[in-house]
Design a protein around this nucleic acid. Structure first.
Length: 349
DNA sequence: CAATCGCTTCACT
DNA sequence: CTAACGAGTGAAGCGATTG
């Protein structure tokens, strides 16, 4: 494994919108989930940099963004366009013929194949200028000895820069970081660590690995390695999907299966389309419901055979949802397909 | 008692 | 000042069940 380059697009969705509408440049706006008419019930997916100055950020309810900046511009998410743009970027990166992992719609990890820092920097500079010239977007590239560290370097250098942290500098780089900055550590894990008296990565490094394994299982061992600068997570090419799902919030809360039939049909159709793109068959269908009190429940069924049938997906998910609706009114419904087989028949996972 | 099932929790964006 | 605000996608974790 060579040095890892982690390419992360800067405020990707917002920047895509600026590509479509250059007049948005320097404007404070957000790209939110859901259509314009339902923006009060939506969440910020990406805030433009001008909007971030007001404290607006991803995952923030749009209602709160409005309080921070009453004249903030709202744009509904144009997923198709972001997807197309992402594919262009992936295509551009593929031309470098390095091992690549598409981590998400706006994030790709590359194995440079070289241990030489100046060489890695030159590659990163070339990539960065090509993305700028050919796509018209800015990105940040983090370079380090593993995917996890490259990601953390990328975050530290955002936006619009190339950051390098060499093996010898890793300890110092990690030491003063808060544990929340570790890839895979979210709010819950941070709280648990804090209760153990651990706030900084340097403190995490001093805790015996066995203690972390006791509290966090497999992830505990990984946490320990990361904290000590010993992580060696490499680029995994083309990791297969484990599940494909679609969900949406309803216009009106209901416990009537007939009122959500149309919505389920659309979700099932979209999920099956995605499945078809990846040439997969499924054997498990799950339905999901978020109730008015915000509790979440799912119900799943395994089929006797692999299939790519839309009707089976719709009929099964509707049946499962009917069950979920007997518990009360719901605000959101979803479908998820899993347990895949490549194309037809009996092939094992 | 390990594998599997059905479901919940967690981490991102 | 704390609680409330609250979309969508995906993987991992976990307790109960089972062969």
């Amino acid at each position: 494994m060579g040095l890892i380059l982690l390419v992360d697009m800067d405020s990707f969705f917002a920047s895509c919108e600026q590509l479509k509408r250059p007049e948005l440049k320097d404007k404070a706006f957000v790209v939110g989930t859901g259509v314009e008419s339902r923006k009060e019930k939506s969440v910020v997916q990406t805030a433009s940099y001008a909007a971030r100055k007001f404290g607006i950020h991803s995952a923030m309810p749009f209602s709160m963004a409005l309080k921070l900046k009453p004249d903030i511009i709202y744009l509904p998410s144009d997923d198709k366009f972001y997807e197309q743009t992402s594919e262009k970027i992936v295509g551009l990166l593929k031309s470098y013929r390095m091992k690549m992992e598409v981590m998400s719609i706006d994030e790709m990890a590359l194995d440079s194949g070289t241990e030489d820092y100046p060489s890695a920097r030159m590659i990163a500079e070339a990539i960065k200028s090509r993305i700028s010239n050919e796509i018209g977007l800015q990105c940040t590239i983090g370079i380090s000895t593993s995917v996890v560290y490259a990601k953390m370097v990328c975050d530290a250098f955002k936006p619009n820069r190339i950051g390098i942290v060499k093996r010898a500098e890793l300890k110092a780089f990690l030491a003063d970081k808060d544990v929340i900055e570790i890839l895979g550590v979210g709010g819950k894990t941070k709280e648990k660590l804090n209760k153990m008296g651990i706030t900084k990565v340097s403190e995490l490094a001093k805790v015996p690995a066995t203690r972390l394994v006791d509290s966090f299982g497999r992830f505990g061992a990984e946490l320990s390695r990361i904290a000590k600068g010993e992580d060696e997570t490499g680029v995994v090419e083309g990791a297969p999907a484990i599940s494909i799902g679609r969900e949406t919030t309803l216009d009106k809360e209901t416990d009537d299966i007939n009122e959500v039939a149309g919505v389920m049909a659309r979700l099932a159709k979209e999920a099956i389309e995605e499945l078809g793109k990846r040439k997969l068959w499924y054997r498990n269908v799950a339905s999901k419901a978020r109730y008015t009190d915000f509790t979440l429940r799912t119900k799943a069924r395994r089929l006797s055979n692999y299939t790519d049938s839309y009707e089976t997906a719709l009929n099964t998910s509707t049946e499962l949802l009917r069950d979920l609706l007997s518990n009360g009114k719901v605000r959101k419904v979803g479908i998820r397909l899993s347990e895949f087989s490549r194309q037809s028949g009996q092939a094992k996972l």
